[in-house]
């Protein structure tokens, strides 16, 4: 971790959803204890990486991010009200756009579809 690169814009690139709230995580570990997949990394460590701007650490874990079942067993028991499933979906969206080259019209700064069916610049 000593040579970790910090990407200050990383969290904004991930948090396109208004419900994204990785910063609410207090790292208690209830999520890891209740995960049927036994994924220890998600969401505690991974969300911390996002908030700290550690892009490379997150991208390295693409498989783990897509292994989440979105079953919400963790979210059901989270004492901090973290929107874990939506946060994981946001991470997937980031990987789709920035790593896999999918859905690129939805990138930060790009014109993206809005609820009204029109187009607006994401995040101003």
């Amino acid at each position: 971790m000593a040579s970790a690169q910090v990407d200050l814009g990383f969290v904004d690139s991930v948090a396109l959803s208004a419900d994204f709230n990785a910063w609410a995580c207090m790292n208690c570990g209830v999520c890891s204890a209740s995960c049927p997949m036994g994924i220890d990394l998600l969401p505690r460590q991974l969300f911390r990486h996002v908030v700290l701007g550690l892009r490379a650490e997150v991208v390295q874990q693409a498989d783990v991010i897509f292994q989440c079942l979105l079953c919400k067993a963790c979210e059901q028991n989270c004492p901090a009200g973290v929107h874990i499933a939506e946060n994981v979906r946001s991470l997937r969206g980031y990987l789709d756009r920035e790593v896999f080259g999918l859905d690129r019209r939805y990138r930060v700064g790009a014109s993206r579809p809005t609820k009204e069916g029109q187009h607006a610049a994401a995040h101003g």
């Binding site: 959803s17 991470l91 969206g93 990987l95 859905d103 019209r105 939805y106 579809p113 069916g117």
Partner: peptide
């Protein structure tokens, strides 16, 4: 598509 985070493609399909 929604669960995979493909929000743009999903929104287009939903419309």
């Amino acid at each position: 598509a929604y669960d995979s985070g493909v929000d743009g493609g999903f929104a287009t399909h939903a419309r």
